[in-house]
Design a protein around this nucleic acid. Structure first.
Length: 413
RNA sequence: CGGGGCGUAGCGUAACGGCUAACGCACUUGGUUUGGGACCAAGGGACUCCGGGUUCGAAUCCCGGCGCCCCGACCA
């Protein structure tokens, strides 16, 4: 991608109505644009990054047997009345001009359960796992913290279907592991803790995945021995203790809930009367689990964790591009060589952003830092005088001069 | 939904109740520049959030909305 053609631009000053770090940096870098409180447009850079995150999630979901589907955001009132959740505050409702009412989905049990019921009849077809990556709507009384708490946001939701509680428990652990793989791949695992939390209207406990950041809204107590945490919301008598080893010396931190997994059991199969025939030809209720992961929230969390005073520092796995090629000066030789490096990268499928603009060096450096691509390759008359380019790593600041003939080595190809 | 703060060009800001609403960034044109947000010159861009009121006169004062941010309440 040539930067001169890239839609969106960096801005010098952060908009004053966005104090949160993730929104400031994402807006300044040209990743997102704010439409209203809690609602953002993803610009090309932002969408590429979001898709990278979603693809990592997708790969890990596929790896544990998930089959991707896409359910509608627009949902019918009747199914929500079946489960008694139509009048929950988070539901955004739409009334059409001919007085028909719809809900906008903030979760999808009410769609996936009737769906599964329609197709699945026999114990032989279990277990199975359906997931989607889709925009959710929530009637937030107060959207806040940039893209961390929006009214419309991207989320992955996985639903598992079982014939026994043992099988559900087994898969629950598998999903838990998959979540940590995802957190590891996007670069926030060392700040993310499995956290015991309330089970809502489903069960006594659920597990949240809480990522430590000052931008977080939750307070958790971490047991460093067990590497798990407990959410303040279920701490009794101000006396937090580790739910696994009963240790009472816990570390208090602010954290953001990046994921949440629940054993739904028959909470939804019962109202929808979703049953299968077992080996003896007898009807049995299906048991379910659900596993949520906020993909756009993950994006914001990554930014909160990976930045410096100059901008975002993307982990390689989710960076919008692998390489940021920058040319300084407009001598013919510089143009020619830069163009050639750019072409070579494209040929080798290296994701490259080429800053081909006629800006001053300072502007280009500031832009590159804001955008935060892991590797910056700089070409100028100065570097060319040694037949070199300068390679700088965004994260470490480490700089090396590399012969043009040896660029391939730097790019691992 | 309670409490607080704020709404002036795409962004950041200025303007005592009084001249044509000013400046920086960004944008356009021309020129000089090119290793950490360059310089000169000439431009374009504003229903000062909306509606009412007070006044000879309102961006400025008053009332009512709406919007945005923060703290609560609520929540993935």
């Amino acid at each position: 991608m040539k930067q001169s053609k890239l839609f969106g631009k960096t801005i010098r000053e952060a908009p004053k109505d966005e104090p949160s770090k993730n929104a400031q940096l994402l807006i300044r870098g040209g990743f997102v644009d704010k439409v209203m409180a809690g609602v953002y447009t993803y610009l090309p850079l932002g969408l590429i990054t979001l898709r990278k995150i979603e693809n990592i999630i997708r790969e890990e979901m596929n790896a544990i047997g998930g089959q991707e589907i896409l359910m509608p955001a627009l949902q019918n009132k009747k199914d929500w009345e079946t489960t008694g959740r139509w009048d929950i505050d988070v539901m955004m409702k739409i009334k059409t001009s001919y007085d028909k009412e719809f809900g906008l989905g903030w979760t999808h049990e009410e769609v996936v359960t009737p769906l599964a019921k329609k197709y699945i009849k026999s114990y032989k077809e279990f277990p199975f796992y359906l997931y989607q990556i889709q925009n959710k709507f929530r009637n937030e009384p107060r959207a806040k913290s940039g893209i961390l708490r929006g009214r419309e946001f991207s989320m992955k939701d996985l639903y598992s279907f079982h014939t026994s509680e043992e099988d559900l428990n087994k898969y629950y652990e598998i999903a838990k592991d998959a979540y940590f793989k995802i957190f590891d791949r996007v670069g926030i695992k060392d700040k993310t803790y499995l956290t015991y939390a309330s089970g809502g209207d489903f069960s006594k406990y659920s597990h949240e995945f809480q990522t430590i950041t000052s931008a977080g809204e939750d307070t958790i107590y971490i047991c460093d021995k067990c590497e798990v945490a407990v959410n303040e919301e279920i701490v009794e008598n101000n006396q937090p203790e580790c739910p696994e080893c009963r240790n009472k010396k816990l570390r208090k931190e602010k954290a953001i809930e990046t994921g949440n997994i629940f054993k739904l059991k028959d909470r939804f199969s019962r109202p929808f009367n979703f049953k299968y025939l077992d080996q003896n030809g007898k009807e049995q209720l299906v048991l379910m689990g659900c596993y949520g992961l906020g993909s756009s929230r993950l994006l914001g969390t990554i930014v909160e964790l990976h930045n410096d005073e100059n901008g975002i520092i993307w982990p390689e796995s989710v960076a919008p591009f692998a390489v940021h090629l920058i040319k300084i000066g407009k001598s013919e030789e510089v143009n020619k060589q830069a163009e050639e490096i750019y072409r070579n990268c494209l040929d080798k499928n290296i994701e490259i952003l080429f800053d081909d603009c006629d800006e001053s060096a300072g502007v280009k450096f500031k832009d590159a830092d804001l955008i935060g691509i892991p590797t910056r390759i700089l070409i100028s008359e100065k570097t060319l005088s040694n037949n070199c380019v300068e390679v700088k790593r965004r994260e470490s600041g480490e700089v090396e001069m590399v012969k043009i003939s040896e660029i391939a080595k730097v790019l691992n190809c």
